[in-house]
Write a protein that binds this DNA or RNA. Structure first.
Lengths: 168, 168
DNA sequence: AAAGATTGACCGCTCAATCTTG
DNA sequence: CAAGATTGAGCGGTCAATCTTT
């Protein structure tokens, strides 16, 4: 939108506070990254390992968990996805033999997902290509200061969106 | 190009350079943002204006263009989407009366998309809610320094992805 | 032949409805 | 009833094949 009344001192409940020039340029750049980064990483994983990034995250999260096992709801939080999305994805990964599901012995209304040996192998085979792509597109030329800002800002944004989850 | 300290643009043939602790934590945070931000903004727009974020970007880009008109391929680049995705989306927006398409009079193999008055109205109605959401989730508490880093880093990542957009 | 654009089939995400266990 | 999980329909993105114009 070209011309806008500029009022910098009102809350959003009243008159809308539009973005400044600087904020617009930042949002343009951020939106580009947010749209393109998942797509290029997905494409790399799909091509080399027949996995989506989300599937990779699921396998990866399980691989570092105690007993390579996690409850579905905990797993969903870790991989930043909804429970129903996870359920659909895990069903496919189970059909491919990467994961098996069983009711939690401690409490029958939980389901735990367990990474199989076959799933582990697939993850191990996929990891180098994925990590190389992440390094190439994200970390290539970041300074430690930039990394710190990126991490901190990302965390704050995520926290504002979903106040439930938090990380070390 | 930059120097090559290690094995940057190599497939998993050599030794993989894994992520450091710091990089892992940064990537975890960034991945969360990249997955959740589009989804929450989409949800806001969908609920209030029956638009996806991508559709909003399309209308917004046209609204600031000369004559509210852009070639499809230029528009695709501006909104960070593929031409075929754009084509599908514009088709729907055209059916809803927000946009019309016509062949470029200067060169018949281009198609130009034009924002209609109705499309303009829909955009104007959607803008306050969207901008408020962007401000709330992204710019809420960013310092100017953080904003500068975020913008710069995002641009560099997009630039690294853009040229090829495909994989070797 | 090449560039711009479109199409449609396939696949996966979203959302609401539903099932199950405590 | 509430929490965890699942399901399926609908919708939208991706990708390859195709069409059109130069």
């Amino acid at each position: 939108m070209s011309r806008r009344p500029q009022n910098h001192d009102r809350a959003p409940s009243g008159e809308t506070r539009w973005l400044t020039e600087e904020e617009q340029r930042t949002w343009q750049a951020l939106a580009g990254m947010v749209l393109k980064l998942p797509s290029v990483l997905d494409s790399q994983l799909q091509g080399e390992s027949n996995l989506s990034m989300f599937e990779y995250f699921v396998l990866s999260a399980l691989s570092t968990a105690e007993g390579r096992t996690l409850r579905m709801s905990d797993l969903a939080a870790i991989v930043n996805g909804s429970l129903s999305r996870l359920s659909n994805v895990v069903k496919r990964l189970e059909q491919r033999g990467c994961i098996r599901r069983e009711p939690d012995p401690d409490n029958g209304r939980y389901t735990v997902a367990v990474l199989t040996d076959s799933g582990w192998s697939i993850l191990v085979a996929a990891a180098p290509g994925h990590v190389t792509a992440v390094r190439r597109f994200v970390f290539e030329d970041l300074t430690r200061e930039e990394m710190a800002v990126l991490r901190d800002v990302s965390r704050r944004i995520v926290d504002r969106i979903d106040p439930a989850s938090r990380w070390p």
